[in-house]
Write a protein that binds this DNA or RNA. Structure first.
Length: 326
RNA sequence: GCCUUGGUAGCUCAGAUGGUAGAGCAGUAGACUGAAAAUCUACGUGUCGGUGGUUCGAUUCCGCCCCAAGGCA
């Protein structure tokens, strides 16, 4: 106990999965049963004033459970993974300090990695003049290829990894090298860095067809609840169309519609389609994480049964309690 | 009832003087380290409506039938 090497790592839970699988409810159930606090792991619920389209939990849905990392920045802000990592880990520490169970909930795969491994990022941060210059270069004819070739010279490993057409990534790698002098491949950590916590990660899922049906239905509900007005008032308040927050699914399509480039029916269909594709990408991301314990809604009579199982699994594996018992 | 035009991939359609067919979209799989709800990559076999006939060979030509849309009665 006094030896650092034997120190018990604190138990931390994460509930992940594609959009519309009921993660929020599951997290509230877990927190209620195990005196936990929820920490959102969602790149868009971070923003204030984006509520309906991000399916941000309402006060009622939170069921009295404290939620962190929700509505913490203004929508005009460009928030990034590195900031998320810093802020979310701080939130986690505060939950731990209170003796409660941190329960991360959300569907942003990169954010999960950032806090649970944890990733070490390069020194060079967000948007910069260097990035802007590289972006302009990329737009020249043959620019993307030229940048990729340049990257291959200074950081062959990253160039190998990155497809020429993935300009955004090529630029980032170049940006890291140009501003720090270190190639990206050396500046960042491995995927598999050991975390300081004892993570228990559960992914909620369901058969593809059922998932898609739920997503479609949820989009209709969002529209019925006033998604269009939400977007309209965001624009009216002067929020620029190019900002990160308005790139969110459900927002960019409505902006298109409000600008008269498509009908409402088309916008709604596009939101459904983009949400389905997003869910598919989320699944792809999660599948490669071997730590994840999958929970298929189809195997349970109802969500409550799944919640009970979740609680039981987390409880039984709780290292601290097990040791306290002997 | 008659005439016309269609019936080819989940959808919209293309195509071959007869040698079993291909685009877009959808879909699927994958990648992912400071935009990640972002960005990027790969993947096209389907009784060519049914059934008879001609033919070495029919989805393609011919007959009949079914279905859809339009027109005439």
């Amino acid at each position: 106990m006094s030896e650092a090497g034997n120190k018990q790592k604190p138990r931390v839970v994460a509930i992940v999965g594609p959009t519309a699988t009921g993660k929020t409810d599951a997290a509230v159930a877990v927190c209620t049963a195990l005196s936990g606090e929820a920490i959102s792991m969602d790149s868009m619920q971070i923003y204030r004033r984006l509520s309906i389209g991000t399916a941000k939990p309402s006060a009622a849905e939170m069921g009295g459970i404290p939620h962190h990392m929700l509505s913490i920045v203004e929508p005009e802000t460009a928030y990034s993974v590195a900031e998320y990592q810093r802020d979310a880990l701080a939130a986690m520490e505060s939950v731990l300090a209170r003796g409660n169970l941190p329960a991360f909930v959300g569907g942003t795969g990169l954010y999960l990695q950032a806090v649970s491994h944890p990733l070490r990022f390069a020194e060079a941060g967000g948007a910069s003049p260097v990035r802007e210059r590289l972006q302009q270069e990329a737009e020249q004819p043959g620019g993307a290829e030229a940048l990729h070739i340049r990257l291959a010279k200074v950081d062959p490993e990253s160039a190998e990894r990155l497809h020429v057409n993935n300009t955004r990534r090529v630029i980032r790698a170049l940006e890291i090298f140009e501003t720090t002098g270190t190639p990206m491949s050396e500046a960042i950590s491995d995927w598999e860095a050991e975390p300081d916590q004892d993570w228990r990660i559960f992914a909620l899922t369901m058969p593809r067809e059922a998932l898609y049906a739920r997503i479609n239905a949820r989009v209709d509900i969002m529209v019925a609840r006033g998604l269009i007005d939400e977007v309209r008032s965001l624009l009216q308040s002067g929020l620029p169309r190019e900002c990160q927050a308005l790139q969110a699914i459900g927002y960019r399509e409505i902006v298109e519609m409000l600008d008269g480039r498509c009908t409402q029916a088309e916008a709604v269909e596009a939101i459904k389609m983009n949400s389905r594709r997003y869910a598919k990408r989320q699944l792809t991301w999660l599948r490669r994480d071997s730590r994840i314990e999958w929970m298929n809604l189809a195997d349970f009579d109802n969500p409550s049964a799944l919640h009970a199982m979740l609680v039981a699994r987390i409880w039984e594996g709780r290292g601290g309690d097990k040791n306290a018992g002997n």
